[in-house]
Design a protein around this nucleic acid. Structure first.
Lengths: 335, 335
DNA sequence: TAGGGGAGTCGAAGCGCTTCGACCAACCGT
DNA sequence: ACGGTTGGTCGAAGCGCTTCGACTCCCCTA
């Protein structure tokens, strides 16, 4: 491995000069800079990450904690993770992938070892165990998701209350009065991952205004679970004409079952989904949906991290505004 | 941050002794060890990752390059990535997440900076641009996938040829003589990511033995694409009674379309999928399938990396044996 | 009883980089 | 013509850890 000292020697300057060429923290004459850059090229020099981290106490690494769970829709997580990794690179950072398995201990480990300059946490629970540790580790952090107490924390998330309200608005505008919400798996609620509850809150509040009746049912993904849930919904509320689905793994089963039961979408029943665009457009019926902007969330989280590390930090909650796209799965309520 | 020196002082020993307690590279008396460990606890000491990397030239980090593409079935990638991260931790390693975006340059960067001790590459193409760089970087590496030239490389992958053969065997045993293979998106073939081709090779070879006619069609995911492909298949081979599907995003659309066309599964048509277990069990028909052992692949890749880093290395190709599970989507060919 | 050897500990020399203060020259205004 | 800048460069002191050789006991064997 080529070292900075070797580059310095090759270029006929001191080591510090090479360092300053690299960092730009002091002015360097054009001729020296050129010479040094040429030597770097020629020798194929790459700064040693460990040495750099040690000397500067900056690792240029962002740790990303992803959940290990399988009850969440994985593609969204992946999309966020990739967006984080990609935008981190554009800011000169690399991303360390931590799985939920280690739990709160991971926070301690990473903060303690200075392995990462900052952390991004996904799948945040309302009373997340990692938060106290995070707070007094003093490390820069950004959450994707919203805990109960956001004081001193920067959070990025979709505005799920507005999302719920938006869905209701759309259905109400089409004349629907009885709507069922197909929610995430029960475990998601038990864990109090805020987003699912916030959506339902948004739905309920708006529904009350609009004089709409809401039936909310958590539901596992897959056909079997959906069949059971759907049966119970129609038993309880035979007049249901609208569905709001917030469980990607239930979307296709729902459409399929409705079709089997001879309920046409959107003529007899309307369906609004909260899901990534791809799911909405690739489903068997092109779905009216509120998009989950995974990329955007990942990107914004990184930008917040970078801003905080640069001292331009803001401790604030950034809620992305939901956008509802009308497609082929919603229509006027049947008379 | 607490340093090793502070721990040493607190415990009344030298810094090197603390280091040896931590690494176990020299024997330490029980009493000293206890005293040191107690001090570590009490002071909340965590070794500084950068310093450690610098001094030992080992970062305890494994870099994982995941593809950026969206034409691959993402959940499998995610599952592998998580398995890699999780098993890496059990061996004391962390995982750095690199996206394909940087391409070959990432290999150079990571190898050059000694940021990672080893690399795991996913989504390997037959003539992957990253391989030459990898080879002469001299870094430890393991591929998940199989390039054309595996010399000097350790590879882990499912045995896709055997997978294809297994599917054919099963269908042939049930009396099917005309089978269509629904493949991955065309882009996957154009890129020459070996696995898709290898599956088809396996299918073809076995089909010849079994006197079965094969029609292979690449296919994008989603309903629209699948509808077109399916139409063309039945136009060309009206007698088709079996399907082998190697594109998770096409599975559900296929089942749905068959149902709409009044072709019953498995009475009229049999379907074998190559997909993760979850997809097979959650589909509208429980699918006979060959599982893609994502977890296992991730785990084995890490184990190979760890072995190589420990000097117990083996440059070999490890092909996992496919397992076919019979479920409800295959049955005897109609008379 | 002398000598050999292992167990346990320490000191010091780095690992490759950043950064601070110091230094030297050239240049400014007056 | 002279003190004060400013731009450009260097030397040296670490950053916190690992690791090598050296040293000291103490026990075992011949």
């Amino acid at each position: 491995m080529v070292t900075l000292a070797e580059v310095a020697q090759h270029a006929g300057v001191s080591a510090s000069t090479v360092s300053y060429v690299l960092s730009g923290k002091r002015s360097i004459s054009a001729s020296t800079r050129e010479r040094v850059e040429h030597s770097i090229q020629q020798l194929g020099y790459h700064p040693n990450a460990g040495a750099r981290a040690l000397a500067s106490s900056r690792s240029n690494i962002i740790a990303l904690m992803v959940p290990l769970r399988t009850d969440m829709y994985v593609p969204v997580m992946m999309e966020i993770a990739i967006a984080v990794a990609t935008s981190a690179r554009t800011h000169g950072y690399d991303v360390l992938l931590l799985t939920g398995e280690e739990g709160p201990a991971a926070v301690r480990r990473i903060a303690g070892s200075s392995l990462a300059d900052a952390m991004i946490l996904m799948d945040v629970e309302l009373h997340d165990e990692r938060l106290p540790l995070l707070r007094d580790s003093g490390r820069t952090a950004v959450l994707i998701g919203l805990p109960a107490d956001t004081s001193g924390l920067t959070c990025v998330d979709l505005d799920f209350e507005a999302t719920g309200a938006l869905c209701v608005d759309h259905l109400a505008g089409l004349g629907h009065r009885e709507v069922a919400v197909i929610g995430e798996a029960p475990a998601v609620y038990e864990r109090h991952t805020g987003f699912a509850e916030r959506t339902v809150d948004g739905v309920r509040a708006k529904a009350q205004e609009a004089g709409m009746r809401i039936l909310h049912r958590p539901c596992e993904g897959g056909y079997a679970a959906m069949a059971g849930t759907l049966g119970r919904i129609f038993d309880e509320r035979p007049g249901t004409t609208g569905f709001i689905v917030q469980n990607e793994a239930a979307v296709e089963p729902l459409l399929n079952l409705l079709q089997q039961q001879g309920r046409a979408v959107p003529e007899d029943v309307s369906v609004v989904a909260v899901c990534p665009e791809q799911v909405a457009t690739q489903a068997s019926v092109r779905l009216t949906s509120v998009a989950i902007p995974a990329q955007e969330m990942g990107r914004r989280a990184v930008e917040q991290v970078v801003a905080k590390l640069a001292g331009r930090g803001t401790d604030e909650v950034e809620l992305l505004e939901p956008v509802l796209t009308v497609r082929a799965s919603t229509g006027p309520a049947p008379a």
